[in-house]
Design a protein around this nucleic acid. Structure first.
Length: 589
RNA sequence: GGGCUGGUAGUUCAGCUGGUUAGAACGCCGGCCUGUCAAGCCGGAGGUCACGAGUUCGAGCCUCGUCCAGCCCGCCA
């Protein structure tokens, strides 16, 4: 076997002058002066300039090799005179004078440039992902991902956690997202499901007494994509701990998350403990359970003020269950009329019935809304929103759910348009006290709002005495810059509370036994109190790489329509395969 | 399933109020060139203006439909 190289393309320095070396890599770029030829040779580690002089017989042959040809050069490391040093490269003080070469891999015309890194259509990038991955930005992102995952593992081991594997072929669970199903050959008509998360397995490992579990776990959910949500599969740093309360978990996760972010990013961030915001408060202040705290706008519930006011549009709506949300913004009262028109326009585009506002100007309070309000009511708004001269308050009035959605969107829109978002900051928070149940409008019933295995706050007592929709759960999310990084809970490990919790959501005891048999049996045979969380690996890397799209930190992502354009998945299979799996494809009418 | 934005050379884009032969840059091909590092200079090839229909004397541009892409809503316990 020949030795392909003596050094990598980022290794050679002035101290290596006169050494005879071999370098192997891709032809990154070429500068052909007719007499002398410069080639930047690239590998995973960097670039080195190779010079080919007319003295060698192969100058002409090498000058014809296309970019991205894989080649090995032999030669001597040479000093570059001062004016020829390239300060942009770590190897810029030297060059390799070629005395031999060998093509290791030829290259045809490229469908997209590796260098320079011009914008290219995403479908082309995905079809030729191996070329895209050669490009510096994506290559660095994937290396960062590897380093982040290595750091996660190291930190988890240091915190006393053990790593486990759990099954990929498992059974479908009735709650949650759509499953990916895998037909069974041996059992006609039966299906495995790919795990949406190793939720039940990690709880069972706690019941098995392993105390501290983690796994870089693949999760499969058949749901539609978003910019921060890859279709099909994604990875979680799955964590579970025994004999812990919520604060114990927060402490571990804060140390882990802050450690990772501080290790891999120069952006500013608050030290732990992270701010904790109850779910209901978050919905009012930010209109969402994943607030971007970089935006310094806190909204207020103004329903009480308008319920009594002379503004009939709001008062009438409030009488039929609407709420009014105030969006106070500092220092923009003097913005031109055009700005306010555009905001109103945008509000109606996203579905608002309108967008009222008040401006606090030198000449007094102004705005389309003013004539309907008494001076006392304006004072109340001032006090509630903490506004004064130079400030503006926008108002949204709609059903509680729609108000949250619209005001939350407008808050982000204002933050972006007004340049309020610090691009060099990470703002973390915990969202806590999620409701255990919510009203399912589609099926007109009480449903679990998050994980059905979460422990209700107040336990059996709360389940028996409170209105279902008032019961809170030990359920929490960690949020960074408006992106939900992680969701977790203290689990319900007591079978009686479990049966009762499911009963409220409409599942009789028999159904629980049937669908969660393994879990409920385990809970009856000595289950420790336990809880956990599962930070999204992809989203963490996305934030650290400062990418707006999750596909930029995944080596081989699917497109928005859940297709792998490179491997051509999904694809049809042979009749033989279908027969073996007892599957018949029927046309949809 | 729905909404928004877009689709012009291999790629990124320009293309005026509908008007002659649809342009530029990068890339590609050929030539020149001994110190570049975004090398330079000269020349060349490359277009079903996403597709279909309509309006018009005339459509890249206007209208309708279809397809495709991105982003969003729904969905994501």
């Amino acid at each position: 076997m020949q030795q392909y190289r003596t050094h990598t393309c980022s290794e050679l320095r002035k101290t290596d002058i006169d050494k005879n070396v071999y370098l192997a890599g891709w032809i990154h770029s070429r500068r052909d002066h007719g007499g002398v030829l410069f080639i930047d040779l690239r590998d995973n580690y960097g670039l080195t300039q190779v010079v080919v002089y007319p003295a060698v017989a192969f100058l002409d042959e090498v000058s014809r090799l296309p970019k991205e040809t894989v080649i090995r050069f032999g030669g001597k490391v040479a000093f570059r005179s001062e004016e020829n040093v390239n300060p942009k490269l770590p190897t810029g003080e030297i060059e390799v004078v070629a005395d031999s070469f060998e093509v290791l891999g030829t290259c045809d015309a490229l469908p997209l440039n590796v260098f320079p890194e011009d914008d290219a259509p995403e479908d082309l990038r995905l079809t030729y992902r191996f070329l895209d991955l050669r490009r510096s930005k994506l290559h660095q992102n994937i290396m960062l991902r590897s380093d982040v995952i290595a750091s996660m593992r190291r930190r988890m081991w240091d915190l006393g956690f053990k790593e486990f594997q759990t099954p990929i072929l498992t059974s479908s669970s009735p709650e949650g997202a759509r499953d990916y199903l895998v037909p069974s050959r041996i059992h006609p008509g039966k299906f495995y499901a790919l795990p949406q998360a190793p939720q039940q397995f990690k709880q069972l490992l706690m019941i098995s007494g392993f105390d501290r579990y983690f796994q870089i776990a693949p999760c499969f959910r058949d749901e539609d994509a978003r910019a921060d949500r890859s279709p099909g599969e994604f990875y979680q740093l799955d964590i579970e701990m025994s004999f812990v309360n919520q604060d114990d978990i927060f402490k571990v996760v804060e140390s882990l998350i802050h450690g990772i972010f501080a290790e891999f990013s120069k952006k500013t961030m608050d030290a732990p403990p992270f701010v904790r915001i109850p779910f209901r408060e978050s919905m009012i202040k930010y209109g969402t359970d994943k607030p971007d705290l970089r935006i310094p706008i806190e909204m207020r519930d103004c329903t009480a003020i308008f319920a009594q006011s002379g503004f009939k549009v709001f008062r009438g709506a409030i009488e039929t269950g609407a709420v009014v949300r105030a969006i106070p913004v500092k220092g923009i009262a003097k913005n031109p009329r055009n700005f306010f028109d555009k905001m109103v326009d945008h509000a109606t585009t996203i579905g608002a019935k309108g967008l009222a506002y008040l401006q606090w100007l030198d000449a007094g309070v102004k705005g389309p809304l003013l004539k309907f309000l008494t001076p006392e009511e304006v004072k109340s708004i001032e006090a509630l929103c903490g506004v004064g001269l130079g400030d503006v308050v926008f108002f949204i009035c709609d059903t509680p759910q729609t108000t949250n959605k619209l005001s939350g969107e407008l808050r982000v829109k204002l933050g972006k348009d007004l340049g309020m978002i610090d691009p060099d900051a990470f703002k973390f928070c915990w969202i806590v006290d999620f409701p255990m149940y919510e009203w399912d409008e589609e099926n007109k019933c009480v449903a679990f709002s998050h994980n059905p295995f979460s422990m209700p706050q107040g336990g059996m007592e709360a389940l028996s005495s409170k209105q279902p929709l008032d019961i809170l759960a030990y359920q929490y999310d960690i949020v960074c810059n408006g992106i939900e990084l992680s969701s977790g809970a203290i689990r319900n490990h007591q079978p009686e509370i479990m049966y009762r919790a499911f009963e409220i959501a409409g599942y009789p005891k028999e159904t629980v036994d049937e669908r969660f048999g393994a879990m409920i049996n385990a809970f009856k045979l000595g289950a420790p109190p336990h809880g956990g969380i599962a930070p999204g690996v992809d989203r963490i890397v996305m934030l650290l790489a400062d990418e707006q799209n999750i596909r930029e930190i995944i080596a081989f992502p699917m497109n928005q329509r859940a297709q792998d354009l490179m491997m051509n998945a999904p694809a049809t299979v042979t009749q033989k395969q279908l027969r073996e799996l007892h599957i018949k494809v029927v046309e949809h009418s």
